[in-house]
Amino acid sequence: MTLTKLLSHYRTLNLLSILLFIGLWQSLAFYLSDNSLPTPAMVAEVFWQETLSGQLPYHLGMTLLRLISSFVVAMLLGCAIGILLGGNKKLDAFFDNWLVIFLNIPALVTIILCYVWFGLVESAAILAVVINKLPNVVVTIREGTRALDKDLLEMTRCYRFSKLKTLRHVIWPQLHPFVMGATRSGLALIWKIILVVELLGRSNGMGYQLHLFFQLFDVAGILAYTIAFVAVIQLIELLILKPLDRKAGRWRR
């Protein structure tokens, strides 16, 4: 295979870009030769030890658990409220202000308030994340509901589709891209907020652990945990979201 042919494969391109990234990192670390930027090999070493000791899997697991539970709650609630607001102009006009308020409350404020009002407990942590994520889901799904094809909805009314049939065969396929969009942006947003939540009021999870590393100025540890987390999110994208996209996009030309 010639070089150009090799380059035309996306897989090779992907691999090359990662190798280039690691190469840049390595040379920069080598050039600085300072504790504040450890080499990839050192980070890999820390990663391996943390994994063997069970520390990394435990904290990563706790964070993932929080991520999944707050994500599920936020998506379910957000879809329901979004569909409701998108389909009802009066409700939408009434709650629009609320939405703007919640969209603009800084994440840190909701987190602090949740801990102050409900104590340093798990449910307060989850609630804080949900409150941060919910308005984004609502806005996205509301947009999707507004964009629903009126012609198709008329058709379902004319042919007397049941509510369930309409939802499953007409509304859901149209909302699917919006839900996927909310899912992707949601995962990215939630895991960033979760770390702050853990840092401020939990005694396990990635955020807590990163806080410890920060106090020790342990950059290798911070990077090792970051890489583990990014890898997990990539796996979710590759193993769950991409196949869902493919399945839903079959009908497209």
Partner: peptide
């Protein structure tokens, strides 16, 4: 029972031809 042939076909693009008919 009303059958309505609209000016535009109004088929569900994410369902096959047969499904479009049987869903009604």
């Amino acid at each position: 029972k009303i059958g309505y042939v609209f000016q535009n076909p109004r088929l569900l693009p994410w369902r096959t031809v047969r499904e479009n008919i049987t869903l009604a």
